[in-house]
Design a protein around this nucleic acid. Sequence first.
DNA 1: TCCAGTCTTTCATATTTATGCAAAATGGCT
DNA 2: AGCCATTTTGCATAAATATGAAAGACTGGA
Lengths: 152, 152
Amino acid sequence: MKKQERQRYIKRLLSSNEIERQEDFVSLLRAENIEVTQATISRDIKDMQLVKVPSATGGYHYSMPVQKQMDTEKKLKRTLKDAYVSYATQDKFVLVKVLPGNGPALASLIEAMHYDEVFGTIGDDATVLIICKSLALTLDLQQKIQRLLSDN
Amino acid sequence: MKKQERQRYIKRLLSSNEIERQEDFVSLLRAENIEVTQATISRDIKDMQLVKVPSATGGYHYSMPVQKQMDTEKKLKRTLKDAYVSYATQDKFVLVKVLPGNGPALASLIEAMHYDEVFGTIGDDATVLIICKSLALTLDLQQKIQRLLSDN
DNA sequence: TCCAGTCTTTCATATTTATGCAAAATGGCT
DNA sequence: AGCCATTTTGCATAAATATGAAAGACTGGA
């Protein structure tokens, strides 16, 4: 189906771009050969319950819905606590080792969080490599992970 | 100061969540004898990082930012765990007793959570009385508090 | 007190977002 | 296929939100 596919694209765009207005979605989708109007995006956003968040830096950007994020974070926390083995950082990478079999689950949870810091993740059975958007953001992400681990 | 006081009002208005547009804030504040324009509300919302959330029922409403909610919940948990003595319920009231000195802090944290169930709170040095909006909601709130106490 | 710098507000308006309605597309059914 | 019901979309525009610029308020210091 058309709409669903587009909404999948929208989700993916969320994590990889700083999207300030609905027209940004329109252009980014056009770049992927998907033609839509702002009206449709507005409806998609309502459907998906995305929100336009005032960011600390003074701008705005679209982001995943609150509830989903909280649910996902809970799962992420549990998975991390259950399966965590170790982690290491280098450059823009954070490498998390987990118990065998937990890699894919963890990776997809991290994807689902749509962290601003994260460019993408890739993993195997027992490892997740998180690629950040910048060095500074790598630090941020590291802290987030530590917090998830230590935090009640 | 003026701005901060207004933003406190805005926070309180949030929990009585029928707020669909910024003009709603303007009218509600006018009802409390606070005159502002939509422009100022827009800037307040940016300051406070409130978001306009597409609700499941098809409309929109303004809401607290995710991050702040999570931070507050964390503090609330800690305070409860640290200072909790006992609690009792009657009618639409939940009465929480805490160690001396912790009442006001707890009350303001509960206010800050903007629980839908809560009509208002009042407290002294060692007690917080939470007034719920209905009997059913009192039960809900009780469960929330228990969860905060028991929960990891 | 008066001033300069900073912050806050309003007004006016630009920008962005939401939506009524008609047209187009999609999905069964027969 | 052909038809009807339902869903989705675009267009046009209404509605809502954000923001530059000017004016007003506030603050600390001379």
